[in-house]
């Protein structure tokens, strides 16, 4: 009987498949966000009687948000680096830093939304604001989901240590986090910078 060795093989194959499956899911996410971008580009000049991008965007705040998210992507990379060195403490610390930065980003984004509403740009104002809020909101919802998800994974990490399963889960979560950073880069470039220039 070799039943005590089969599960481990199976697990490693299963985690390989999980990671591949998640990459394919990220492919779907690219399509999802590009649909949002496409809709935004179609509607961005349709401000009806409401404000346009230049009227409401604050470059300084958005730049800070960008740096926070870029840094969190870096720290989640460091966390995975620690994980691969079997350094549970480093992994935990860098992931918590990542989560705090994510929370900071969310805080700023919520403030940004409040600011827009004060400027008279609610989601119901125009085609432009509908597309803007939905694009930003979908990204923000992803970040929120990521924070809750990674927190749950950290609980599992503390309980179980670095195992085949916990490590693959955390690796997948880090892919997700980097991906949100990529999406943000495009939002920063094609929503904010483009909006300020044009």
């Amino acid at each position: 009987m070799t039943s005590h060795t089969t599960p481990l093989e199976y697990q490693s194959k299963q985690t390989q498949m999980n990671i591949l499956g998640f990459w394919i899911f990220l492919g779907a996410e690219i399509v999802l966000f590009s649909t949002l971008f496409a809709s935004y580009f179609v509607l961005e000049h349709n401000t009806a009687s409401g404000p346009a991008g230049q009227d409401i965007f604050i470059l300084k705040d958005v730049l800070i948000q960008t740096f926070i998210l870029l840094t969190s992507s870096f720290t989640s990379g460091l966390a995975i680096h620690s994980m691969r060195n079997q350094d549970k403490r480093g992994l935990l610390i860098w992931m918590i830093v990542t989560l705090l930065l994510g929370a900071g980003f969310l805080y700023m984004e919520i403030n940004e939304f409040i600011h827009y509403v004060h400027e008279g740009a609610t989601i119901q104002t125009s085609g432009f604001t509908a597309a803007l809020f939905t694009l930003l909101g979908t990204h923000g919802a992803h970040v929120t989901f990521g924070i809750i998800w990674i927190s749950l994974l950290l609980v599992q990490l503390v309980r179980r240590g670095i195992t085949v399963q916990t490590s693959s889960k955390l690796f997948i979560a880090s892919l997700y986090w980097h991906f949100l950073d990529v999406v943000w880069i495009f939002i920063f470039t094609f929503v904010y910078l483009k909006g300020m220039v044009m």
């Binding site: 809709s39 179609v42 349709n46 009806a48 409401g50 989601i123 085609g127 509908a130 939905t134």
Partner: peptide, 12 residues
Amino acid sequence: GTHFFTVAAGGD
């Protein structure tokens, strides 16, 4: 009540 598809409010 958004206006993605309402012409009058800048939707399409």
